[in-house]
Amino acid sequence: MITQAIFYFFAVVLIFAATMVITARNPVHAAMYLVLAFFNSAALWIMAGAEFLGIVLVLVYVGAVMVLFLFVVMMLDINLEKLREGFIRHLYIGVPIAAVMVVQMLLVVGSGIMDPATLPSGDLPIPEDAANTALLGSVLYTVYVYPFELAAVILLVAIIAAIMLTLRRREGTKHQDPGRQVKVRKEDRVRTVDLPRNQQSGSR
């Protein structure tokens, strides 16, 4: 009973947050609602026994991706009025796209692949002592090791590409070379000068 109540609580908050993501006026509010949505879906996954996926969702999406998102959104100088006036204008292209997506989803869900009765049953609900993380790890590194490594290499390529795209030699930057800073000795910077004592004091 309590489990169901908790489930519906998370589900309702999730749907509310997801709606607010697209309706909130302020982009920072929208980003925060997205964080809330991620959080609630993570909670739902954990309730379904997928503790690893749930925690990784929080760690990666909430802890890293959304922080950078928020970073960018905060730096933008967005005119809220301008954002709102495009709503009707873009409606005629938005509605068909939404309709296509709904039809596609209906095709997938309606075709019976998602029917619980036809799913391979496995052990549902998952037994209490099943170590989700350990099981996932042992499958990833044995059965799916090549796809897994491939995905890792693709990510690495993406990182290098992103860095190369933004790495430009700009003129006139005040770039510091830490190696040279460390090598500096007193003799290079400091000059001791013997000042002759001023005879007529106060003449300055």
Partner: peptide
């Protein structure tokens, strides 16, 4: 005593940054 304890701690400590950025903004 959850099995993914270390992961949970890492996830929780990564959330602390929200308070800081939101306060600043």
């Amino acid at each position: 005593d959850i099995n993914a304890g270390l992961l949970y701690v890492l996830a929780m400590t990564s959330l602390g940054v929200y308070g800081v950025i939101l306060a600043g903004w």
